[in-house]
Amino acid sequence: MKKFWAWLALFAGLLYFALPLIGMTEFSLKMRRGEYSFDAYAKVLADPRFQETFTYSVGMAIVTILFGVFLIVPTAYWVRLKLPRLRPFIEFVTLLPLIIPAIVIVFGYIRLYNTSSWLPLTGSATGTNLLLMFGYATLAMPYMYRAVDTGLRTIDVTTLTEAAQSLGAGWFTILSRIILPNVLVAVLSGAFLTFAIVLGEFTMAALLNRPAFGPFMQLLGANRAYEPAALAVIAFGITWGCMALIQIVSRFAPKAQSQPH
């Protein structure tokens, strides 16, 4: 009897999540009257604004991931190695982007870096792109930091560092040849999450007026019927693709060496 209720709860949960998706997918296929077709998808994919915004957001995602890796991996490593007492504080700081709304962050940026400020980043497209990248990196920080920190927990950071040092390695060698390869799967998990966040982000890109995928999805949703549904399915597909990649990549992780008893 217990099993019956468990299965029922699972089924109800699946319905709750799956029904809207099934409905949306079905609706996206009904552009042609009386039959299912991929017309909406074809229209979306053929739209030059889709290509432009998608390319822009993918580029921004890659830059954000690289920036995130260069910022987070050495920080999380250093905190684990030298400042373990600061870990709760650092974790709290990395969680702040979940509490502070993106709109607050972006207004802060605009106020600090407007054209009449000492660092007028919003005065040029490159400067604004840089600001947007920092914003994305901030939004992705809770996920990236946690992923990397979890990866670092699986290896004996201190002993591996000391072993490498005793063999003559400096900090750069230790980070690039020992630490990063051993937390690569964790870094990739963080990277795929960052990718998904950047692709769907609306507030920052819209307020900084950059041609990103998030504002394009919103614009399309406001003016069309079938295309937004098709776009949403595409966006879901990308996100799930990222999740699948995390799973695949984690199979190729270097196995932790057997620890002594």
Binding site: I155, D156, T159, L160, E162, A163, A164, Q165, S166, L167, G168, A169, G170, R177, I178, P181, N182, P254, K255, A256, Q257, Q259, P260
Partner: peptide, 17 residues
């Protein structure tokens, strides 16, 4: 890393990758 002293650790400390 400037001392040229080899060390063996209790926990082996081999690089897993």
């Amino acid at each position: 890393n400037q001392r040229n002293i080899g060390m063996v650790f209790q926990a082996y400390a081999l690089f897993p990758n």
